[in-house]
Design a protein around this nucleic acid. Structure first.
Lengths: 247, 247
DNA sequence: TGTGCTTCAAATGCCAGACAATTAGAAGGA
DNA sequence: TCCTTCTAATTGTCTGGCATTTGAAGCACA
């Protein structure tokens, strides 16, 4: 592992990249202990703070974990879906909120991905997943519910649908798409009438899943997508009109 | 922003979390300059190296960028899809390689997600996307091609399909699923006969996209999924038999 | 021999201070 | 007006050190 002194990148970034490559390529295997900070500093011919900055970079990506004490050190972390979820969600959320992705684009992607889970979920969903969805539908019908709570319940409903597919890779990929939409959805105010429409579609979807009917589930999601996009259009149009009146 | 002295987490992790929250919640907006390292050290009542470790953590997630010089400092980064791709791919790759996810599970997820793009890509794919796919098909037919190069070409082919949907959110999510499969695919040796099968299916898919036929595209992907899984089964079965003979 | 306590050493976590490198802007001169 | 030079601010890096944690070895004692 060597560094390029001519590189414009920070030393700590170069060191982090070198170690990351070693992990990804399999040179360093899971639970293997890295050399101590002092040893790494020697190997790369830099100071210990620089090595530490590199290790913190890797820790931020959950590639390593550190342990204090006599037998401590930095260890290659077995990256779990559990750990990867929050990062995936944070990144997806920021991508949507900072990149002027239109609501329509985000919505289209989310429902396209979710439809991909529909047949699998219809086939494999457990009673538990179905119960979660029914419970969330029930919650969504409560009158005093805030818009934020309604959206949060919506997310739980859809995640149960996705998890029903029983494929951790799908769940991981979809977590970002579904959760990242939440801040965008929170910008919408739902009338009682809107909520009734959405809940009715949720019931259709839950019924389809209960009947193990993948096609009907996908149809329900498509209907929900149309409803959501129509709702967003009207809300945004109304706001634009208000702005015009004020200005 | 305050720190919890009783927390088991490192100070730098706590500081990073505090700043990350501020970014995600919108308290810090894009391109806004953070206080200098010295000021942050004062605010959090820690030393500058500790602040620096926190900032490196955020930099590793592309949440901030740093600039040296008189008007330099750390700035909230506008997270671009461009920057997010490599991280998404690294994480997905490690999740697949370290988590004993079966080949079938990964394959199922990948093709389910890709099928979700099929109708959109059939509708919107540009001539450029189609040309890329045809070119990769041509490359895949060359006799001297190594298995690794064949897989790499396969990835390019499928990414063109996904990008054809013209939805950056889909492209981002799918990049992980498609690229992360590559190391798994590289474990397979393709006979000339296998390659011919796969290329024929690629041709079917390209034809369907050229005809703007979303359903046929999805069917082609399903056929390809079956072919891939069948191939993997036979390869793994053969290896298991060899191991048994040896042992 | 076995058990529990003490001590030790290695490693990370954190800090203070300093210097180098970089860069924008201010100051000054042609 | 334009170019050069200086200056100040900021990040990048290093040195050295102390605090804290923690497993393991050593030791006393039953």
């Amino acid at each position: 592992m060597k560094l390029d002194p001519a590189s414009p990148a920070d030393l700590s970034a170069q060191i982090a990249a070198a170690i990351r490559d070693a992990i990804v390529s399999g040179t360093l295997i899971v639970d293997e202990r890295l050399p101590s900070e002092a040893e790494l500093a020697d190997q790369f011919a830099v100071s210990r703070p620089t090595v530490r900055e590199a290790l913190k970079r890797l820790a931020a990506q959950s590639l390593i974990r550190t342990q204090r004490g006599a037998t401590g050190g930095a260890f290659v972390n077995r990256l779990s879906f559990q750990e990867a979820y929050p990062q995936q969600i944070t990144t997806s959320t920021l991508l949507l909120s900072m990149n002027t992705v239109s609501f329509d684009t985000a919505c289209e992607a989310r429902y396209a991905l979710e439809r991909a889970c529909a047949p699998l979920s219809a086939q494999r969903r457990s009673a538990d997943h179905l119960a979660t969805m029914r419970a969330e539908i029930h919650r969504q019908l409560q009158p005093g519910l805030t818009d934020e709570a309604f959206c949060a319940s919506d997310v739980t409903f859809h995640r149960a649908l996705v998890d029903g597919a029983g494929n951790p890779v799908l769940s991981y990929q979809l977590a970002g798409a579904v959760e990242a939409m939440q801040p965008l959805m929170n910008m919408i105010t739902f009338t009682a009438r809107d909520r009734a429409h959405i809940v009715a579609l949720h019931v259709d979807i839950a019924d389809a899943l209960e009947a193990h009917d993948g096609a009907a589930t996908a149809d329900g999601l498509t209907a929900l997508e149309h409803e959501t996009r129509k709702l967003a259009r009207s809300v945004f149009a109304e706001r634009a009109a208000k702005r015009k009146n004020r200005g």
